[in-house]
Write a protein that binds this DNA or RNA. Sequence first.
DNA 1: CGTGGCTTGTGACTTTGTGCACAAGGTCGA
DNA 2: TCGACCTTGTGCACAAAGTCACAAGCCACG
Lengths: 217, 217
Amino acid sequence: MDGHTRRIPDATVARLPEYLRILVDLVDQRIPTVASERLAELAGVNAAKVRKDLSYLGTYGTRGVGYDVDYLLFQMRQALGVTQDWPVIVVGAGNLGRALANYAGFGERGFPLAGVVDADDTKVGTEVGPVRVRPMSDLKELVAEHRPVIGIIATPGAVAQQVADELVAAGVTAILNFAPALVTVPPSISLRKVDLALELQILSFYQSQREPRRDSA
Amino acid sequence: MDGHTRRIPDATVARLPEYLRILVDLVDQRIPTVASERLAELAGVNAAKVRKDLSYLGTYGTRGVGYDVDYLLFQMRQALGVTQDWPVIVVGAGNLGRALANYAGFGERGFPLAGVVDADDTKVGTEVGPVRVRPMSDLKELVAEHRPVIGIIATPGAVAQQVADELVAAGVTAILNFAPALVTVPPSISLRKVDLALELQILSFYQSQREPRRDSA
DNA sequence: CGTGGCTTGTGACTTTGTGCACAAGGTCGA
DNA sequence: TCGACCTTGTGCACAAAGTCACAAGCCACG
Ligand SMILES: NC(=O)c1ccc[n+]([C@@H]2O[C@H](COP(=O)([O-])OP(=O)(O)OC[C@H]3O[C@@H](n4cnc5c(N)ncnc54)[C@H](O)[C@@H]3O)[C@@H](O)[C@H]2O)c1
Ligand SMILES: NC(=O)c1ccc[n+]([C@@H]2O[C@H](COP(=O)([O-])OP(=O)(O)OC[C@H]3O[C@@H](n4cnc5c(N)ncnc54)[C@H](O)[C@@H]3O)[C@@H](O)[C@H]2O)c1
């Protein structure tokens, strides 16, 4: 098909969604073309890096002019695989799971909520955002109905691995894990994690480097 | 004081909290010592990397034996600057802000909730988790009372920069941003971001690489 | 149709991160 | 006390990522 697409480096992949968000903004503002310099400013990175990143998608810029915003946006969506929706299933209807289910932003960005499941019978049947919580036994059916689908783990860390196994068994091929625990999956499954406590601890590190805190006075 | 601590690479810093979490688990299990091999397995990384990471903190291992869990945990806390609590202030009492405020895990890990503020008068005064929402005008006072403190942005992206500016003006020196927007701060301020849609898009990319999806049939 | 000015795309280089392999150094049993 | 056995700590070679600088290419204008 496409021909020349070299393998895209991980570091570049991690930045593409940032560019995507910016391009959507630019389209909203009816801005027809954008130079790497401007894009770099909006993304908070180096202009050469932007050009190199974009060059992995193909040669879509015009020298002396910049990039056509619409066209680049189209290509970016293509590259990221977000030309169609990816439904998500949230496992765990606790504080975080409910917040995620209530969040309209996902649907708007192409990740509509397919359902929420929970192991706690007292939570099954309750409303969260636009859906009702379903039992774990419905997982397989839910996945089959929406495939391909992304699974989100919003349960306590102690059961994260077990939940991941259940998601994989049900046919989920991509997982986002919010629980603070190591989860391993077969190599064909994509896995990412978000750990908020970890982020806070990293902030703590850099902050205490700058200005060591007074010890217990 | 300490003497020989070389500068710790960013990649290592990002892994330290993971080791910290594992060490806490090991202490709970009354496991006295741990070898880099085991630690690597628990963290899902290479053993040589673990040893190199730990060596930046100092020479705390014993050849032939491994690392003393208690002592390493102490040193790790020291290095990360989490020997004392870092209170957090959440800005924005929406879906996400409330989930964060309700989350007990932060307090347990040394990040107690100092308060929640919101610009919306109808939200001010309502209960979220253990506190009541306070007006933005209380921010300065709240920060002064708890300093040093970490600010969490849980507002819409459109106001994220403005909120960041207010946090900085109030004396916050570290910020965690959940809004999908570029935020810039003075160099003395530590800033990290968490963007969930971005994570989903990265998953989308890797998944569509593996198995390109059928086009609109 | 030619020239000047602007911006891309990329080769060369630097910096950062990873992983192997092994000497150094410690433990423990005899 | 000695030696066999482990595991650390790190030098080194390689891989990945980031930056610079500039030739190539395009547009616009006269
Ligand atoms: N709430 C937050 O803001 C927040 C922030 C950072 C991290 N986290 C992490 O996210 C996860 C969820 O946090 P929370 O505050 O929503 O917790 P919570 O206790 O409120 O919710 C957890 C939910 O998971 C369900 N559950 C438990 N075991 C299950 C299983 N085996 N299968 C399916 N569902 C199961 C429970 O019934 C409950 O509804 C935790 O790992 C937490 O560390 C939460
Ligand atoms: N809810 C989620 O699960 C989720 C997931 C991913 C990302 N996010 C991001 O987190 C942010 C918050 O999401 P949400 O779902 O909680 O939104 P929300 O609309 O429910 O809440 C936003 C809150 O911010 C307050 N606010 C608005 N402007 C303010 C200002 N200038 N100063 C102080 N407070 C202000 C509002 O009054 C409101 O209470 C958004 O940027 C969203 O994109 C949320």
